[in-house]
Amino acid sequence: MQGFYTLFYKEMLRFWKVSFQTVAAPVLTALLYQLIFAHSIGQHVEPYPGVSYSAFLIPGLAMMSMLQNSFANTSSSLIQSKITGNIVFLLLPPLSHMEFFLAYTLAAVVRGFVVGVGVIVVTLLFAVPPFAHPLWMLVFGLLGCGVMGILGLIAGIWAEKFDQLAGFQNFIIMPLTFLSGVFYSIHSLPPFWQNVSHFNPVFYMIDGFRYACFGVGDVAPWLSFGVVGVTFLLLSALTLHLLRSGYKLRR
């Protein structure tokens, strides 16, 4: 338990020590998106009845930032430890696979939440969503950041070089997050792309979070919860298996 706690704390301290890059920068990016998109598109559309585009954008942007930063936390920490070699200091102690897994994942969730709160606070200048179901917000925040933190773990374990990690990010994480309805309701897409979106777990994270904010979404919250929950469990099982097998970490 002490091992888990120490690693969790270290992982949080690691991003907090450079919070200018890890928290302030993504909040600023989200603020720019909000400014530009709300201003250029905002006047012309009303995604849901009674919900302005400015307001609509807030949970999407917040969740996107949370997801990206959760992924970044685990993946960048692991790849740096592997490349500099200081991962040995984690491999020599008697940390269990579960401790390792939980510490990294939870620290990623914490970073996601810190960024998420930052994004929501600054975007409140533009519109105030009703925050209809706070408990659902928490659930989708936790599961979404958890899934992406775990994906970051997998990517960090798998990648041997920074450019492999960048590839994972550019060809898997970015398309999944951008094609998930952050900037639009998928009902505005042609039917084919609507169908494709339904295979993207990130869509359910965003839509679930948006439902939690407004009380309306593209699909029912329980469906989103089911898809995201199952994704979380499957990826957790896969990651624990990788850790137990020593894949790429213990040769």
Binding site: T6, L7, K10, L13, R14, S81, T84, F89, P93
Partner: peptide
């Protein structure tokens, strides 16, 4: 680990054990 001081490094290592 370039992020930490000597004491932090040793405290963390203790914690892992």
């Amino acid at each position: 680990d370039p992020f930490f001081t000597v004491r932090e490094t040793l405290r963390f290592q203790s914690g892992y054990f």
